[in-house]
Amino acid sequence: MIFALKRLVALAVTLMVASVLVFFVVEVVPGDPAAYMLGLNAAPDTVSALRSELGLDRTGFARWFEWISGMLVGDFGVSYTYRTEISTMVLDRVVVSLPLAIYALLLAVVIAFPAGVLAASHRRGVGDTAVMGFTQIGVAIPNFWFAMLLVLVFAIHWRWFPSGGFPGWSGGAFDALKALTLPAIALALPQAAILARVLRSSLLDTLGQDYIRTARAKGLSPRATLWKHALRNAMIPVLTIVGLQFSFLLAGAIIIENVFYLPGLGRLIFQAISSRDLVVVESVVMLLVFAVVVVTFVVDLAYAWIDPRLRR
C-alpha cells in the first residue's frame, strides 16, 4: 500500500515535470509560435494579432499555468487550424487509437506466450527452432509491408475484413472491431515476435536457477515446475517490454493508420505538426505522456505484485 502511494507521488511529480518540458520545448524554445504558425511571409500586424489572441504576450509561466489547469478539467484549448475544441478532436482519435493499441497488445501477448513457453521448454528442439525462426522473420518484416499483404489476402482476395477506414462505434462494436482487426494484426506481429523472444530468454534464465532444481527435487514435474516456479519469476523483463509496447502502440501506429486510413492519434499529431498547430501538438503529446506514465505506474504495481523483494 505504501509502495503504491509512493509510486503515485512519483507519478504526479513526473507528470508535472513533463508538462513543463513539453510546454517550454514546444512554445518557448523555437522562437515565436505565432510567426512560426503563420509562416515566413506573414505581416507583422497579423503576427501580433495572433500573439495576443493566443495570449502569447503574457509570461511563459502564466501561459503554462493556464494550459495545465485547463487540461486538468478537460479544457485543452482550441485548435488554431481547425478552430474546434481540441478535447473533442482528441477524443475522436482516442476512441480509435486506444482500442487499437489494446487489441494489438492482447494479440501480441496471446501469440507470444505460448510461443515463448514452447520455445523455452523445448530448448534446441523443433518447437524452439521454429519459434526462433518465425520470430526472426516477425522482427525483420516491416509492418506496413505486412499490412499491405494482409489487405491483399484478407480484404481484397477473401473479403473477410474491410481494407481500410473506420465506421465508428455507433454502428456497433462488431463492425468497429472488424475494421480494427487487420491493423491490430499488422501491429501485433512484430511486437509478438519481440515478446516471445524476451519471454523465452527470460524463462531459460529462470529455468537455470537453483530454486528450479529444488522444485524438481520436491517431485514436481518439469511442466509444473515451469508454470508454478519459473513463469512468475520470468515475468519482470516481459512486463517491462509489454509496458513499452503499449506506449509505442498508442502513438507510434502512424504508418499503419495511414495504410488503413484510420483516424488515429498518430495521424492527428502528424497533421498538427505539418500545419504548425502547436496547441494541438502540446496537448496530444501531454496526453501521451500521461498515458505512458500511467502504464509505467501499472507496470510498477505489477512488479511488486510479482516479486515481494520489490515491495518497498
Binding site: 537453483d210 529444488t214 522444485a215 517431485g219 514435474s221 519469476n233 510479482i306
Partner: peptide, 27 residues
Amino acid sequence: EARMQHIRGADIGMVFQEPMTALNPVH
C-alpha cells in the same frame, strides 16, 4: 519419469549447497 516424481521429495529428499538461491524468491 512419472514414477520418479513420486519418489523424489517423498522417499528421497535433497538439501542443496546455496541456501541464498535454493528457494523461490516469489513464494
